[in-house]
Amino acid sequence: MSAIPSSGWLYGAIQRGRNRGLGGLYLVVAAFLVLYAVLFPGILSVSGFSKFTQNWFPLALVTMAQALLMLNGGITLAIGPLVSLGAVIAATTMGGALGVPGGILAVALAGLAIGAVIGAIVAHLRLPAIIVTLAGSFIITGVALILLPRPGGFIPDWLSTTLAGHTPVAFLLLVAILLAWKAFLATPLGIGIYAAGDNPIGAFRSGVPVERVKIVAFALSGLLAALAGLFVAAQTGSGDPVIGTPFTLNSIAAAVLGGVGFLGGKGTMRGAICGSLLLSVMINVMFFLGFPPVAQYVAQGLIIVGAVAVPELLKQWRARR
């Protein structure tokens, strides 16, 4: 019986450990959210909150897709094309015989399958992930262009209003996905993603099927990116074969803002989600303050470097004292 309080204590310690180093990030995110609410009180209404979370939702999904792989010691440059492909498949299949459920299923299966194939190539043929996903991004873009050469397709109106209307459905979906991620982390396969990223040889010797874990990570990443594409299609009401392009870099930037490292095992999913929220808020604030899109690029570049450099400099400064 005494095992329960002690395991509760252990749980608390682990959670504290995962939050370590993220305090500054939480503060910055909170400060930006307050600034946003002061500048645009509209966010505090249900409809304003819904719109805000709808802008954040696809970025949060692709950031999860990217962070999943970075935690496993990989990286993917195929996020943007996968988002485009998800949007294109949704827009081309939903008018078909199987309707919306068939479309959602097709998007999910395509994401899983493409991710698994890329993962199998990386894991079993021992090719570097960065270059495989680079080549893969050309192939996926090509498939999207063949399926739908120019923007168009069909998304039922009711789906667009459900997902991207004046109700916080997107936010609830995100909460559900995060809960699913927590449940997945409690399985051996889920924790294996961290373990294999932190120390592949150690994980292998401890019985983690490193190669299978990598394939699963890539498959889940593909699924999340394709679903983000489905949402973008619902948001815009049509499919577009190049709509996902900015998501590749933004997913990396958000994950890095959230403290996820490139070498695997370092960082947390909650950090990555906070990073995506920060990036999303920053883009929104700059947009509403009337920054020209060009100045947004300049500011984004500076902010990303600052976000990584400042904690590092603080660490050095502390070490010197």
Binding site: V294, Q296, Y297, V298, A299, G301, L302, V308, E312
Partner: peptide, 26 residues
């Protein structure tokens, strides 16, 4: 940036590319 600020090169050069892209259009 990579040597003194300890920013990982992939981030440093990516941010630089984003920065230059904006500057160029200006």
């Amino acid at each position: 940036g990579a040597a003194y600020l300890r920013v990982p090169p992939i981030i440093m050069t990516l941010a630089m590319a984003t920065f230059l892209q904006g500057l160029l259009v200006i």
